[in-house]
């Protein structure tokens, strides 16, 4: 797992005045799962689209399995498989008919195609639904066929763009297990997600991407070293955290304590507190020592009128790394 199959150098993409990707460089090693972790709009899909030759880079180059971008579009497309974020299937056709169509586009024919379709249907656990139309499938089943279509031609490198968005926990579990099985079978996977837990569970290495820039890259151990021995307190609120914190800030007469980047200053000054942010119904507080900081943080929250339902104490993780690097939570 030391030879790079993908090398991206200073990839940039602009759409009019918007610079969506601002010079990204990284490599993906053969046989690894490499995750691009970042919030929505960070530039993950644009990066994947450039690497799969759907969008020409405004600047920069890449090389996939020896094929250059820009330049050898056909060679790149033969080497890669793409599992797009959308469920890119034909609802009116059956699972098998869909796979036949996508297989033919990769020059697969006859018995070889039929056999391969049987294999991937088995792999995604939908062999018994092969003849059913895709429109009769649940969201999770559609996601699995969406993945199967990307696997048909046994690509050297598989791009999976947020493949678990909008599905139930069981289906997500199944897909994550499938991705690990693919890696164990020798396939290289470039996986994008904004779920920290997925990146942590799957990845051999992670690139953290934010606002079009790659702000950190390494193994999970290497990345969490960024935050040292920091721990995370996760306060689950009854109300939406951002709105509640804003209200509490105004009530406290501390209008200046609402930074534009989404970080919270409500807990500043408390012993051991490094930074805090609001995500959905949670307030995430980075602390040097959870045991020391917990009583003060919960006390401050209560004093501000926030309705804390429960608190988790977490070891250093990628969420904390992102918070440390950007001052914001992954799902801000």
């Amino acid at each position: 797992m030391t030879t790079p199959i993908l090398i991206a150098k200073d990839l940039r993409k602009t759409f009019g005045d918007l610079e969506a990707v601002k010079g990204i460089s990284f490599s993906v090693l053969r046989g690894e799962i490499f995750s691009l972790l970042g919030p929505n709009g960070a530039g993950k899909t644009t990066t994947i689209n450039m690497l799969s030759c759907l969008l020409p880079p405004t600047a920069g180059t890449a090389e996939i399995a020896g094929h250059a971008i820009p330049g050898d579009t056909l060679g790149v497309r033969r080497a890669i498989g793409v599992v797009p974020q959308e469920i890119a299937l034909y609802d009116a056709l059956s699972a098998r008919q869909n796979l036949e169509f996508w297989g033919r586009l990769y020059d697969m024919r006859g018995q070889a195609l039929t056999q391969r379709i049987d294999e991937v249907l088995e792999q995604v656990g939908l062999a018994d639904r092969a003849k059913d139309k895709v429109k009769t499938f649940s969201g999770g089943m559609k996601r699995r066929i969406n993945i199967a279509a990307g696997l048909l031609h046994k690509p050297q490198l598989l791009f999976m763009d947020e493949p678990t968005v909008g599905i139930d926990p069981q289906s997500r579990r199944r897909i994550l297990d499938m991705v690990k099985e693919l890696r164990d079978g020798g396939m290289t996977v470039l996986y994008t997600t904004h779920y920290m837990e997925e990146a942590e569970e799957l990845s051999d290495r992670v690139g953290i991407i934010d606002q079009g820039r790659l702000i950190a890259l390494g193994t999970q151990a290497e990345l969490t070293r960024v935050v040292g021995e920091q721990e995370t307190l996760r306060l689950y609120l009854a109300e939406e955290a951002g709105a509640a914190a804003a209200q509490a800030t105004v009530a406290a007469g501390d209008g200046a304590a609402l930074p534009a980047d989404g970080g919270l200053t409500l807990f500043n000054g408390l012993p051991g507190v490094l930074r805090a942010s609001a995500i959905d119904h949670q307030i995430v507080v980075n602390v040097a020592d959870a045991g020391e900081a917990l009583p003060a943080v919960v006390g401050r929250a209560n004093a501000l009128g926030l309705h804390v339902r429960s608190v988790d104490i977490e070891e250093p993780n990628l969420e904390a790394v992102f918070l440390q690097l950007t001052g914001r939570g992954l799902r801000d």
Binding site: C53, L74, V82, P84, E86, A88, L89, Y90, W102, L105
Partner: peptide, 13 residues
């Protein structure tokens, strides 16, 4: 809109 066109274009076509 449904992403199938992009998927076709990501294939060697």
């Amino acid at each position: 809109r449904e992403g199938t066109l992009a998927r076709m274009l990501a294939a060697p076509v």
